Simulated assay, not measured.
Amino acid sequence: MASEHGEEVKVLGKWSSPFSNRVVLSLKLKGVAYKYSEEDFANKSDDLLKYNPIHKKVPVLIHKGNPLPESLVIVEYIDDTWTNNPLLPQDPYERALARFWSKTLDDKILPALWNACWSDEKGRDKAVEEALEALKILQEALKDKRFFGGETIGLVDIAANFIGYWVAILQEIAGLELLTIEKFPKLYKWSQEFVNHPVIKESLPPRDKLFAFFKASASK
């Protein structure tokens, strides 16, 4: 299956990874056909070692034979290459803000939530406090918009896919209440809008499969 530009698009990914999922969401929102290759980290493929020899991590996008790692870099590349259904605003200031929030998600917000869900009892209170503070910051950035991208899903929404979908599963396994309608009504409403968007809904990994995967990881 080829892309609309007539060149093959291939994604090396991991079904349970929110970072791989960002690439899938972006391609689906653009209507770009692609081949998907599932990676086994215990037995990394020749393609992964060839196309991402430095980090040996997913996702990797291969377009016209050129490999590109790092999910946020890939999403911007997809947006620049296929210009329909833009994921970044046209206004330079708004574009810069979208990049800022995407980077803040990866550098600050996602790690805080991940740590809260996986921390041991000793460090849990502090980790939960940091996670709640991170969600508060994100909710303030959303303001009263439907999506971070306004009326349509954009770069920041895709970057926040972990918040929209993965967090509900992880907090249930950990027995925590982080993102709830009571604590963060606007952000919770956004998460429901996000996961129920027709394109997003069909492109997220199955909830029961993801729950079982992380439940098994938690019990190790």
Rank of each mutant, 00 (worst) to 15 (best):
S3V: 11
E4M: 15
H5A: 10
E8C: 09
V11E: 08
G13M: 07
S16G: 00
L27E: 10
L27Q: 05
K28F: 07
K30G: 00
G31M: 07
G31C: 07
V32P: 11
S37H: 14
D40F: 00
K44N: 01
S45T: 04
K57R: 12
K57P: 04
P59E: 09
P59H: 07
V60M: 09
L61C: 05
G65H: 07
P67D: 05
P67M: 03
L72Y: 03
V73L: 14
Y77M: 07
I78C: 10
D79W: 03
D80W: 03
N84Q: 15
P86Q: 13
P89Q: 10
P89E: 13
D91R: 09
E94C: 00
T104H: 13
D107A: 15
A112C: 08
W114R: 11
D120G: 15
D120C: 08
E121L: 11
G123W: 04
K126D: 14
E133Q: 14
Q139T: 02
E140Q: 15
E140A: 14
L142G: 05
K145H: 14
T152G: 11
A159M: 07
N161W: 07
N161F: 05
I163T: 15
L170K: 12
Q171I: 10
Q171H: 06
L176D: 02
L179Y: 03
T180A: 08
E182D: 15
K183N: 13
K183A: 14
S191G: 03
P198K: 04
P198Q: 13
V199S: 06
S203L: 04
S203Q: 04
P205L: 06
P205C: 09
R207W: 08
D208E: 14
L210V: 11
L210N: 00
S217Q: 14
